[in-house]
Amino acid sequence: MSILIWIVVGLIAGVLAKAIMPGSRDEPGGWLGTIALGIVGAVIGGFLSSLVLGGGGANGLNLGSILVSVVGACVLIGILRMIRR
């Protein structure tokens, strides 16, 4: 994927993950934090997708990539919240 597509998918996935798992106001945010959350979520989601489904992952600007990225971002939010406690 090109860098621009990573940024767009990261932004969409980050916004959706933050909407699914809303947190407190003291969590870091902003556009860059949301994009980073989505991009790291895409990497985590792609890894989990390859383990569970045996293939596929975040591979372009499509619904499947966004869903995989959102799941990965939600997993990342959950892990970060467990670490903070």
Rank of each mutant, 00 (worst) to 15 (best):
L16V: 15
L61S: 05
V71P: 07
G55I: 08
G38H: 08
I77S: 12
A17Q: 00
V9W: 12
K18Q: 14
I83E: 09
G14F: 11
R84L: 11
V9F: 05
R84G: 06
V43A: 15
M1R: 12
V70Y: 00
G54W: 07
A42T: 05
P22S: 07
G10M: 01
V40T: 12
L51C: 13
G57K: 07
G10Q: 11
N59T: 12
G72S: 06
G41F: 01
G54L: 03
L48R: 03
V68I: 11
G72R: 00
V15E: 13
L11P: 00
V71A: 15
I35E: 00
L61Y: 11
I66T: 09
G72N: 06
V71M: 12
A17E: 01
L11R: 01
G72T: 03
A36T: 13
V70S: 01
W6K: 14
G23V: 06
V8Y: 06
L53D: 13
W6I: 11
G55C: 02
G64A: 06
I12A: 12
A17P: 03
R25L: 07
L48K: 02
G57T: 07
S2F: 14
W31L: 10
I20D: 08
I7K: 04
L32E: 13
T34W: 01
I66R: 02
L63S: 10
N59M: 05
T34R: 05
G10A: 10
I7L: 14
G54P: 00
V52M: 05
I77P: 01
F47R: 00
I3K: 08
I39C: 11
M1T: 13
I35C: 09
R84Q: 08
L67M: 12
S24E: 15
V70I: 10
G41L: 00
G38I: 09
V8A: 14
L4N: 10
W31H: 05
R25P: 04
M1C: 08
R25F: 01
A36N: 05
S2Y: 14
A13Y: 01
G60D: 04
I66D: 08
E27F: 06
I12D: 07
G29N: 08
V70G: 07
M21P: 04
G30C: 12
T34P: 02
A19F: 06
G54S: 04
V15T: 13
W6Y: 11
I66A: 05
